[in-house]
Design a protein around this nucleic acid. Structure first.
Lengths: 340, 340
DNA sequence: CTGTTAGCGCTTTCAA
DNA sequence: TTGAAAGCGCTAACAG
C-alpha cells in the first residue's frame, strides 16, 4: 500500500509530503511536523526536509489540512453592493487584517439580497471558520450560523431579533453636525434616505430626525435613493421641485454629491450660502476639490480591525456571547455646510 | 471500523454523509451519489435521502470533495490596488461571472507588489483551480503557474517573456480621441503617466505618444502619478508651473479628475476652452456632473467575461496555449475636451 | 526526536 | 440501482 502510494505520487501539482519524505529519507509525519509551527524536529532533519521540499516545489495541501484539523482558515466575506464606493475600502482593509491573522477571504458579492440563501449554502459547504457580513440577513439565516456554530460578525448591520456580534458606526458626530447646521441657521431640512429595507440608511435618517426634533424642527421632506449618485441627484430634484430647502442631509456621501450637483449645477443654488449639504461615510471623492463635502467619516480601519478581532475571539471561543461595538464617526468639516 | 465512525459522527457542524445515510437507511455512497449531478439514484431513495439531509441540515463538505476530486472550485483573484476605484467594478463582475460557473473567489488584495510571493504560497496551498491576476508578476512567478499546471489569466497586464493568457483593453479609441484633440487644435500636450513599473500606465502613455507622433507632435512633458486623485492633482501643478499646455492626457480617470481640479479650481483655467483633459477607464465619478470627463471606457463586463471564459477553457483543457484578447474602449465624449 | 497508525468526509471503482 | 472498500494528503496520538 505504501508502495502503491509512492508509484502514483509526484504527478502534477507540486508533489505530496510523501514525495518530500522519500527525497529526504524521513517519514511522512516528519515532513508534516516540519511544516507545522511548534513541533519538534531536529535541526539536521529539518534542513534535509526543507531542502527536499524546495527542490520539489512542495507546499502543504491546505485542503487536506483543513479536512483533518477542522479548520479551513477560510473566512467568508459577504458584501451586498460592492460597487458602493464605500465597500472597496472596507474590503481592502478586511482582507488585509484577516490575512495578518492567517485567514483567507472567500468573497461573496451579492447582486441582490435574494442571492443570500444560495451563498450561505456555499458558506456551509466550504466549512468557513467564520463570516463577516455586510448584508441584510433574515432571522433564520442568522440562526443558521448559530446552529452550525459558525461565528458571525455583522458589519454596519444589526439584528433586533437575534443576539449577534456586530460593529457599526454610530450617528454620534452626525448629531453634532446637524446641531451645527441648525445653529448656523438652517431650518428647512430635506432628508435623502436609502432604500426602505436598508438598515444603515434608516438609522441615519432616524438619527438626523431625532437630532432635529431636539431643536424643535421637523424635516420638511424625506425622499429616498439607492445610495447611488444618480439616485441622490434625482431625489434632490424631486425635493427642490416641491419645497424650498436650506439644508440637505443624505444617508451617504455619494447621494450627497449627486444632490450637490443637482443644486449647484442644474439649479444654480449656492452651496453653502443658500444650501448646506452633508453626507455620511467619508469616501474618497467627497474630499475632491470639486466637492469638499462636509460629512461624517467612518473610521474604517478601526471598524474592520474590531470586526476581525471579534470574529477571531469567537473562532477561538465558540460560546462567546454577542456584543455590539460602536464607533464614532469623525466630522469632516469640508465646505458644503454652514456650521454654527 | 464503520461502527467506530458512526459513534463519533454528528458532532458539531451539520453532520456528515454517514449521518444522513444512517437516517435514511442507505449506504454512505448512496448519499454521495444523491448530491452529485448525473448519477443514478432511484427516485424513492433520493427522496428519503433528501428528506434526511434536510432534517439534519446536511451540506456536502466541499473540502473533502476537493481533496478527492482534485478540484477545489476555488479561483484566486489577485488584485494589486483594490482602492483604485476601477477595480471594485472589475471585482464585482468577476465574482459574479465566476459564481455563475460554480467557482468561488479566494481574494487576495495586495498592498504592495512585494507581497506577491507570500500570496502565491497560499495560492498553491489552497489548490486553486486557476487564477485571475491584475498585478505585476515576475517571469519566475508566471513560470511557477505553468510548472504547477495552474491556469492563469492576466487582467490588463501582459508578459513579454512568458507566453500567458491575458485580456486587456487596447488603446484603440484612445488614438481617435487624441487625433480628435489635435484636429481641434490642441498642440501642447502634457502626459500624466502611472508609476514607472505599471505596465498599464506605460502602455497608455506610449499609446498617446505614438498617436501624437503620427501628427508630428511630441508631448511637451510627461509627469507621473500613482493613479490617485492627489497624484494627478500634484502632477498637473508641476506641469503647469513649468509649461504652457493646452491638453492633458492622464493614464487613468482619477488622475485626470485631479488634474482637472488643479487646472480649473486652483489655476482658473477654463476647460475645455483653454485646456482639454482626458482620462482612461470610465469610472463612475467621471460621469458625475461636476466632471463629465471625456474618456475611454473599458468594457469591463466583456473583459471580465472573457477572462473568466479563458480561465475555464484552460481549467478544462490544461494544455491550451496562451492567447491574448484585446477589447476596444468606447469613447465617452464628456465635456472636458474639444474634439475636431 | 522520529516512525507507525488511524482516520478527517468524501468519491469512485467494482461486484452484487 | 446499490453497497463495500480503497484511498485523496494530511494531522495527531502513541510508541519507541
Amino acid at each position: 500500500m505504501a508502495a502503491d502510494r509512492q508509484e502514483r505520487s509526484g504527478a502534477r501539482r507540486g508533489g505530496t509530503s510523501y514525495d518530500v519524505a522519500r527525497a529526504a529519507g524521513v517519514s511522512q509525519s516528519a515532513v508534516s511536523r516540519c511544516f507545522r509551527p511548534g513541533t519538534s524536529v531536529a535541526p539536521g532533519t529539518r534542513a534535509r526536509i526543507i531542502a527536499a521540499a524546495d527542490a520539489l516545489g512542495y507546499h502543504p495541501n491546505a485542503i487536506a489540512q483543513s479536512l483533518i484539523t477542522r479548520r479551513s482558515n477560510l473566512v467568508a466575506v459577504i458584501i451586498s453592493n460592492l460597487t458602493n464606493l464605500y465597500y472597496p475600502e472596507v474590503l481592502a482593509e478586511l482582507t488585509q487584517q484577516l490575512s495578518e491573522r492567517g485567514a483567507r477571504v472567500l468573497l461573496f458579492a451579492l447582486r441582490s439580497e435574494s442571492e443570500i440563501d444560495s451563498v450561505l449554502d456555499l458558506v456551509w459547504r466550504y466549512q468557513v471558520d467564520g463570516a463577516i457580513v455586510a448584508a441584510q440577513l433574515s432571522t433564520e439565516q442568522m440562526l443558521a450560523f448559530a446552529a452550525r456554530g459558525t461565528p458571525l460578525v455583522l458589519y454596519n448591520r444589526h439584528s433586533t431579533t437575534v443576539p449577534v456580534a456586530s460593529v457599526s458606526c454610530d450617528f454620534g458626530a452626525g448629531s453634532a453636525l446637524i446641531a451645527g447646521m441648525v445653529a448656523a441657521g438652517c431650518r428647512a431640512f430635506g432628508l435623502i434616505g436609502g432604500p426602505p429595507d436598508s438598515a444603515v440608511g434608516e438609522a441615519r435618517v432616524e438619527g438626523a430626525r431625532a437630532e432635529l426634533a431636539r431643536a424643535g424642527i421637523a424635516p420638511v421632506a424625506v425622499d429616498r435613493g439607492d445610495f447611488s449618485y444618480e439616485s441622490g441627484h434625482a431625489a434632490a430634484h424631486r425635493l427642490f421641485a416641491a419645497y424650498h430647502l436650506d439644508a440637505i442631509v443624505a444617508a451617504n456621501d455619494v447621494m450627497a454629491l449627486g444632490a450637490m450637483d443637482a443644486a449647484r449645477i442644474d439649479l444654480a443654488i449656492r452651496i453653502p450660502d443658500d444650501l448646506s449639504v452633508v453626507g455620511f461615510d467619508g469616501v474618497a471623492p467627497a474630499k475632491w476639490r470639486s466637492y469638499l463635502l462636509t460629512t461624517i467619516r467612518q473610521p474604517v480601519r478601526r471598524m474592520t480591525a474590531a470586526a476581525t478581532a471579534m470574529l477571531f475571539e469567537r473562532i477561538e471561543n465558540l460560546d462567546l456571547g454577542p456584543e455590539r461595538r460602536f464607533f464614532p464617526g469623525d466630522l469632516i468639516r469640508g465646505a458644503t455646510a454652514r456650521l454654527g
